[in-house]
Design a protein around this nucleic acid. Sequence first.
DNA 1: GACTTGGTTCGAAAATCTTCGTACTCAGGT
DNA 2: ACCTGAGTACGAAGATTTTCGAACCAAGTC
Lengths: 122, 122
Amino acid sequence: MPVQMHHPSLDEVSLSAVFAALSDDHRRGVVVALAVDPTREQPCSVFPVPGTKSTRSYHWKVLREAGLIIQRNTGTGMMLRLREPEFEQRFPGFLANLLHLEGRPPVPAESTHENGDAPPDR
Amino acid sequence: MPVQMHHPSLDEVSLSAVFAALSDDHRRGVVVALAVDPTREQPCSVFPVPGTKSTRSYHWKVLREAGLIIQRNTGTGMMLRLREPEFEQRFPGFLANLLHLEGRPPVPAESTHENGDAPPDR
DNA sequence: GACTTGGTTCGAAAATCTTCGTACTCAGGT
DNA sequence: ACCTGAGTACGAAGATTTTCGAACCAAGTC
């Protein structure tokens, strides 16, 4: 009955669990989408993971138990966000490399508003 | 009956296959051991992958089909070596990051000491 | 030649991962 | 209070991965 679900401590997650979680295209897509803007929390309904509610819920669980995401229950919906900076501290460079491999440039900085073209400046 | 086995082209291997191959501790151990000294070829008998011959052979196949290793038959034994620099070109930075995560510093450079002092094999 | 050594491949069995339906919970609206 | 929408947990069925044994192959050795 936990209204708040369990997130494992980062040092009890193994690299094997991380690789296994990311070996699925849909799950990896979620992580990449989140990692593009690591501080931004998004409703899980926006992610194109196919299947029924329980199937989708299963995938969030796999990602959660791999230490990759944090799930927050808002009562009216579930929010997902990347588990940063904990994950970076435990597995340094991993997410940056993943983003690079997927050809997705990380968001330049902490502009949390949709600023079409933000001149990176400096 | 191919005495020489098939290695897929690097651009038909998916990131999913790579992650899946590395989600196993033993397989990842092989890749890390090879990546420490990427040009060095080693007999597959040196790797501590448990199981029968066919089980071990299965794991080489998974790594081979993920584009991670090259298998060369010497008639009297099987040699494994990292699939460099092809893999690096296809998935830049991946192996370096893996080595870093496993706390294994890569061999500095051209010191491919094909002998040096004997590794503790016995 | 016969025999051993070190390996692959092909099933089939075992184990694990994935999907789904059902039951349940929580918060909001009526 | 009842209902609805969004989600988790638990089985069980289905799909995939992993392991093993048996058959086979190639190169050395006797």
